[in-house]
Design a protein around this nucleic acid. Structure first.
Lengths: 133, 133
DNA sequence: ATTAATAATAGTAATGATTATTGTTTTAAT
DNA sequence: ATTAAAACAATAATCATTACTATTATTAAT
């Protein structure tokens, strides 16, 4: 069994993820952590993200386009992506039970997990006048 | 405005997708169409898939891991992926209304579309004894 | 039917995100 | 302090997909 050793770089990656609600990508995390450790490599960010995902500390979010994002919130919840600004919001949690209840009956097997993503234009984008899209 | 011209290759791609429920990948489509047009290139498959997706003929499915899949069924419906065999099933349609109703209230913007994927082990895999996973 | 314009194609190079490799540096248990 | 393993930086490799380019096929107008 492999021992996990301390790592200042991993600490910095973890600290950044835990401190933001922005669901950052590996590149964004890399850019931030580099202000503290200018010589950290992108591979180190990916390796630590994968390790933290495997240990259940964080969750990886994959969407149709673009790179993966990372989320410190590992409980089952859903996301909303604005097609103008690309921001990723958390959805309120009330939805989940309704979905699971409606689904269980008709699935072609056991349902162990599910991913649900909503797309639209967020209120902030709708209200700002200088839109490009 | 760009004119769409006839294309035997595109016809073959379309015919294969329309004739299968397996939600094939570009590579799988490529392999099949190559039995008819041995010199077709993978780029041609991708180009035609993208064109058919833009025109609304087919739908592209992106999942967390692996390549994209393509679906002739463009109406809103959900998928179930077996984590043993990887097969992609269609989910029964009753789920949708419950979800939309539960969601509309709390979203941070308009909800224009959503993607929902379920993961589990399908009954076929559960019942087969010679499993490797 | 011939021509001319342009869409479609094959073949290949390029891209973007991620993973793998390798030689060096840290960590932590003795 | 010694040592074994984990973490690292730097870089190469991989995979899915897109872009490029010279050629071929399709179509509309003559």
């Amino acid at each position: 069994m492999k021992v996990v050793k301390n790592s200042k770089k991993r600490d910095a990656v973890r600290a950044y993820i835990m401190g933001t609600d922005s669901h950052p990508t590996a590149e964004e995390i890399y850019a931030k952590v580099r202000t503290i450790f200018p010589r950290i490599s992108l591979g180190t960010v990916y390796r630590n993200l994968n390790q933290m995902e495997e240990s259940g500390e964080i969750k990886r979010l994959s969407f149709t386009d673009g790179p993966d994002h990372y989320d410190y919130n590992t409980s089952t919840h859903y996301h909303y992506i604005c097609r103008k600004c690309g921001r990723i919001y958390d959805m309120p949690t009330g939805v989940k039970d309704a979905i699971l209840k409606a689904v269980e009956a008709g699935a072609p097997g056991t349902v162990e997990s599910h991913d649900l993503v909503f797309y639209g234009v967020c209120n902030e984008c709708r209200n700002s006048s200088g839109n490009l899209l």
